[in-house]
């Protein structure tokens, strides 16, 4: 894991409360979520609002796929 761990802010002291506050301040300043341990690489993306289900996107078998069903690689046409 070391190769892709996020850069961790340097915080001094052994008091856990103080350490947490310093971490929080660091991430507030950076404008990012605290993410020492969890790195989100894909944000929420499954849509189902009123603008969906337009059915204008490609049929999955109209491509290199003729023997297995793959919908996750289709692009939304909206």
């Amino acid at each position: 894991m070391a190769e892709h761990r996020l850069p961790k802010p340097r915080v001094e002291g052994s008091n856990p409360f103080s350490r947490s506050i310093k971490l929080l301040l660091y991430y507030l300043k950076e404008g990012d979520r605290m993410s020492n341990h969890i790195k989100t690489i894909v944000k929420p993306n499954l849509k189902s609002d009123k603008d969906t289900n337009c059915r204008e996107c490609q049929a999955s078998c109209q491509s290199a796929c003729k023997t297995s069903c793959t919908v996750g690689n289709q692009v939304c046409n909206k």
């Binding site: 894909v42 944000k43 993306n45 499954l46 849509k47 189902s48 969906t52 289900n53 337009c54 059915r55 996107c57 491509s63 290199a64 796929c65 297995s68 793959t70 919908v71 996750g72 690689n73 289709q74 692009v75 939304c76």
Partner: peptide, 15 residues
């Protein structure tokens, strides 16, 4: 082709 996932602009849930 089969690793080519559209992770951010993929299809809607109904699809």
């Amino acid at each position: 082709f089969h690793f080519n996932l559209e992770l951010n602009r993929g299809p809607c849930l109904p699809k």
